[in-house]
């Protein structure tokens, strides 16, 4: 699943479908306006790869939710728009910035990624890429399974409300 630069949240999930926030209903229209075959092709565990400024435009959290609910296990992009970036972290959708991997991975390649170790391996070409690990603060959100879950963790909640 590979796309170009400036993929905006309006094409990830068009506003005409934002009259609901049901996850499966959002997944049913994911990427529809730039890739009408996406929903038929996508399988659980697939990786999405894109160029620069992925997720620009509207702040709709429905966009990373639609991608997550489609079964995508990781988004690799050259760069992410900032609201999409924080939304993905907050809901626990794994994402990583890696311009070289984003540029070189081809549709259909088999990818293995270990974000904690900062490593992406293209099993098809054998090429390995290094990625920047998240700061501890963000790793903690991810470890908790999302931002709201960190409030249910007593130690973290106490730290936040300090």
């Amino acid at each position: 699943m590979k796309y170009g630069d400036n993929v905006d949240t309006d094409v990830i999930i068009p506003a005409r479908y934002l009259n609901t926030s049901v996850r499966s209903a959002l997944a049913a229209h994911c990427m529809e306006d730039i890739d009408p075959t996406f929903t038929q092709r996508v399988e659980a565990g697939n990786i999405m790869v894109a160029g620069q400024n992925f997720g620009c435009g509207s702040s709709r959290e429905h966009a990373p939710i639609a991608i997550q609910a489609s079964g995508i296990s990781l988004v690799i992009a050259g760069s992410f728009a900032r609201i999409f970036y924080r939304n993905a972290i907050n809901i626990g959708l794994p994402i990583v910035e890696c311009p070289s991997a984003a540029a070189e991975i081809s549709e259909g390649d088999r990818i293995e990624a270990d974000l904690d170790a900062g490593r992406i391996v293209n099993k098809t070409t054998g090429k390995e890429y290094r990625t920047e690990p998240f700061p501890a603060f963000i790793q903690n959100i991810i470890a908790n399974g999302g931002l709201m879950q960190s409030l249910l963790n007593e130690n973290d909640a106490a730290q936040i409300m300090k």
């Binding site: 509207s58 702040s59 609201i83 924080r86 939304n87 907050n90 931002l147 709201m148 409030l151």
Partner: peptide, 28 residues
């Protein structure tokens, strides 16, 4: 809402976030 940045016009720091940020903010 991404256009929350509008209030920078009055000298505020104002930025768009997602729904989970809003939920977290409402709680904390």
């Amino acid at each position: 809402d991404s256009h929350t940045c509008t209030y920078g016009a009055v000298g505020a720091f104002s930025t768009g976030v997602g729904s989970t940020d809003l939920a977290f903010g409402m709680a904390t």
